[in-house]
């Protein structure tokens, strides 16, 4: 089977996507799959918009959070230290530096409220080139995301997608 984007290379990435019970399939070569994923931000085939609704914090943590989320991990946790968003809300402090990536979206409005700003201006440490480290993390996460999508592990993919987006926002902003 040829890739449905370039019609040149063999399609090696096969993704089945279910939206509201409607099934769609896509068959791409690796290069085009990568291209789509880049052009669409993170995940190809509208997966992003599909999951966006699910992982919208309003939906997830608002009053309606209990309904319609069967099978989806409801408690967002930092992948490194295990601190949950609820912990953060209750304690007021974060568990580790990765929490800043994990809870990036929730933190931004808080930072704006506290500091009237969301961007650091000031001293920079001499070591620990963060950009390099973030790019490395990002690369690993994208590989994991592709693997998860191939396995049709959408819940895992959603979590990975969120982490990737947070990282991209950080990198894009810097």
């Amino acid at each position: 089977m040829l890739c449905e984007d370039c019609h040149e290379r063999e399609a090696t990435v096969h993704i089945t996507h279910v939206v509201n019970g409607e099934r769609s399939e896509a068959h791409l070569c690796e290069r085009c799959a990568q291209k789509r994923s880049e052009s669409e931000g993170v995940a190809p085939f509208g997966l992003q918009s599909f999951l966006k609704g699910l992982f919208d914090p309003e939906t997830l943590f608002g009053p309606g959070a209990s309904g319609g989320l069967a099978g989806v991990e409801r408690v967002e946790r930092c992948q490194r230290c295990g601190l949950s968003l609820d912990d953060f809300r209750r304690l007021g402090h974060l568990g580790c530096s990765h929490c800043y990536q994990q809870f990036h979206r929730q933190l931004l409005p808080a930072l704006q409220r506290i500091h009237g700003a969301t961007r650091h201006r000031g001293k920079v440490p001499s070591r620990g080139n963060e950009t390099v480290l973030l790019r490395r993390d990002l690369k690993q996460l994208r590989e994991q995301l592709n693997a998860a999508i191939q396995r049709e592990a959408y819940e895992e993919a959603a979590v990975l997608r969120d982490r990737i987006r947070a990282l991209e926002e950080q990198l894009g902003a810097s």
Binding site: H120, G122, R127, G128, Q170
Partner: peptide, 10 residues
């Protein structure tokens, strides 16, 4: 090596 982010600093 300090925990630092280009975006939000230390």
């Amino acid at each position: 090596v300090y925990a630092f982010s280009d975006a939000v600093g230390y």
